[in-house]
C-alpha cells in the first residue's frame, strides 16, 4: 500500500478552502470548533462564525443561513453534533432538506483516549434514524478531499464522518474517483464479500491479504456512502458471493452493517451475513490499536473471524 500518510481532518480543511474560493455562498459555523476549518476562517473571516460551545445554536444558525441561500458547514465532535443537537438537525435542517453540511469529527476509535463521551460509535445510527440526510464515511484522507468537493456539488443535507488529527496511510481508493452513493471495489475475490467504511477499510484490505495467503479470496468494497446505499452494487456482487461481512468503526446497530442487513434481508436473503463492529457496548479510553484489538477489528482479528465464518457456515 501507498506509504503516504495524512489525516482526514486536514484533507477536509484543505478542500474546504478550495471550495470557499470557488463558491462564495459557503460559510462556516463553529461551536468553538473553528480549528477544524483550517485556513478557511483566516481566508474568509466574513463568512466564518463561531457561536461558542453551543451545538444546538450552531445547527440553528446554519439553518437560518441556509434559508437565506448560504451553504453552511458545521462541525463538532460527532457525538455532540449528532446526539446533542439531533433535534435541531431533524427539525431545522432535515425536514426542510436544507443545504447544510454536517461534519462530525473524531469518529470511531480515532480519539479514544478522550473516553466514551467522545468516542463516536453511534453517530451514524442517530443520523440514519432521521430521513433526508446523506451519510458519508471516507476511507482515507484522499477520499475525504474528494468527498468534501462532492458534498458541495450535492444539493441537500449531508453528514460526513471524519476522524482525528492522526495521520493515516493513504489507500488505493486515492486513485479512484468519488461519487456519493457509489461503493468502490478495492479487491476482487469469489469467496467472501467484505463491505467496509471509514477507518475500517484499511484493516479490511489487510485482512483480505491475510485470507489470500491462506487461499481464501475476498472482494473488498469501500462503501463510503452509507446513505444512499449502493444497492445496485450489493445486488450484483451478492448474486455470486454468498458470504457477506460488514466492517465498521461504529456500533453494528444503525450503521453500515444495519444498512446492508436491512437491504439484503428484503432483497437477497439467500446469503450469510456477519456484521463486525462494536456490538451493544460503549467504547472506553485507549489507543486506536487497543480498541481495534478489543473489538476484534484489527486486521489479524478480522482475518481470523472471516476465516471462521467461511468454515462454520
Amino acid at each position: 500500500m501507498n506509504e503516504q500518510k495524512k489525516s482526514t481532518r486536514s484533507s477536509f480543511a484543505e478542500a474546504l478552502v478550495e471550495m470557499g474560493y470557488k463558491n462564495k455562498n459557503i460559510v462556516t459555523v463553529a461551536a468553538d470548533s473553528a480549528s477544524r476549518y483550517g485556513d478557511f476562517v483566516k481566508k474568509f473571516p466574513e463568512r466564518s462564525f463561531n457561536v461558542g460551545i453551543a451545538e444546538q445554536t450552531m445547527i440553528g444558525v446554519a439553518a437560518g443561513l441556509a434559508l437565506s441561500g448560504k451553504i453552511p458547514v458545521v462541525t463538532s465532535y460527532a457525538n455532540f453534533l449528532t446526539f446533542r443537537a439531533i433535534e435541531q438537525v431533524r427539525v431545522d435542517i432535515a425536514t426542510s432538506g436544507l443545504n447544510v453540511k454536517l461534519i462530525g469529527t473524531d469518529t470511531g476509535f480515532s480519539s479514544a483516549w478522550l473516553g466514551f463521551t467522545h468516542l463516536a460509535l453511534e453517530d451514524m445510527a442517530a443520523v440514519r434514524a432521521v430521513p433526508n440526510i446523506a451519510i458519508i464515511d471516507p476511507a482515507d484522507a484522499a477520499e475525504a478531499y474528494k468527498a468534501t468537493e462532492a458534498i458541495f456539488k450535492y444539493e441537500g443535507p449531508v453528514y460526513m464522518r471524519l476522524r482525528g488529527r492522526k495521520e493515516e496511510p493513504l489507500l488505493p481508493v486515492a486513485e479512484k474517483s468519488f461519487e456519493i452513493g457509489k461503493g468502490q471495489i478495492l479487491a476482487e475475490g469469489g469467496d467472501v464479500l467484505i463491505v467496509a467504511c471509514g477507518g475500517a477499510v484499511y484493516d479490511s484490505l489487510k485482512a483480505a491479504e491475510i485470507l489470500q495467503s491462506k487461499g481464501m479470496h475476498a472482494t473488498v468494497v469501500n462503501m463510503a456512502t452509507i446513505r444512499p446505499l449502493d444497492e445496485e452494487l450489493l445486488m450484483k456482487l451478492t448474486s455470486s458471493i454468498k458470504h457477506i461481512v460488514t466492517v465498521e468503526h461504529h456500533n453494528i446497530t444503525g450503521g453500515l452493517g444495519s444498512a446492508v442487513a436491512e437491504f439484503l434481508a428484503e432483497n437477497n436473503p439467500d446469503v450469510r451475513l456477519m456484521r463486525l463492529g462494536v456490538k451493544n457496548r460503549f467504547g472506553t479510553a485507549g489507543s486506536e490499536d487497543m480498541l481495534k484489538k478489543e473489538f476484534g477489528l484489527d486486521s489479524e482479528s478480522l482475518g481470523s473471524r472471516v476465516e471462521r465464518f467461511l468454515k462454520d457456515y
Binding site: F49, V51, T57, G64, L65, V91
Partner: peptide, 12 residues
C-alpha cells in the same frame, strides 16, 4: 429553535 434560526438569517 427560533432565536438561533433568526440569528442565522440576521448573519446572512
Amino acid at each position: 429553535h427560533g432565536i438561533a434560526l433568526g440569528m442565522g438569517m440576521a448573519l446572512a
